[in-house]
């Protein structure tokens, strides 16, 4: 299968993730959309790795998974802390900061 198809799939998933971040109001779902974007980037990296015949892309994808795991821990800790303080995970309720 041509790598262009994989890259196109990665682009579609990336855009879906962007949509999720922009549209959803629940902090956890927004963060899940960011995870989808990271996964799309990983797919692009693995495809590019196959395109060029070296494993650097796979190693980068591997590091990106590690980074995503650490980020999830930090992000969910922040969300849990806010939930405890406010009993709500909705980003609209966190509105003390106005533009």
């Amino acid at each position: 299968m041509s790598p262009a198809a994989y890259l196109a799939l990665a682009a579609v998933l990336f855009s879906l993730g962007c949509t999720g971040v922009l549209l959803r109001r629940n902090a956890i779902v927004m963060f899940m959309s960011v995870e989808l974007m990271l996964n799309a980037a990983n797919l692009a990296l693995v495809t590019a790795s196959r395109m060029h015949g070296n494993l650097d892309g796979q190693v980068f994808a591997f590091f990106s998974m590690t980074v995503a795991a650490a980020e999830v821990v930090v992000g969910l800790a922040i969300i849990v802390q806010i939930f405890r303080s406010r009993r709500s995970a909705s980003i609209d309720d966190a509105s003390l900061l106005k533009l």
């Binding site: 990665a10 960011v34 980037a41 990296l45 980068f60 922040i78 980003i91 966190a94």
Partner: peptide, 26 residues
């Protein structure tokens, strides 16, 4: 609240950075 905002937007920009790197690598 500031931490949550910083985190979500920061994670979003890291993902954009990563995808950009992936395309440059491609």
């Amino acid at each position: 609240e500031a931490a949550l905002k910083y985190f979500v937007l920061g994670a979003f920009s890291s993902a954009v950075f990563l995808f950009g790197s992936a395309l440059i690598y491609a």
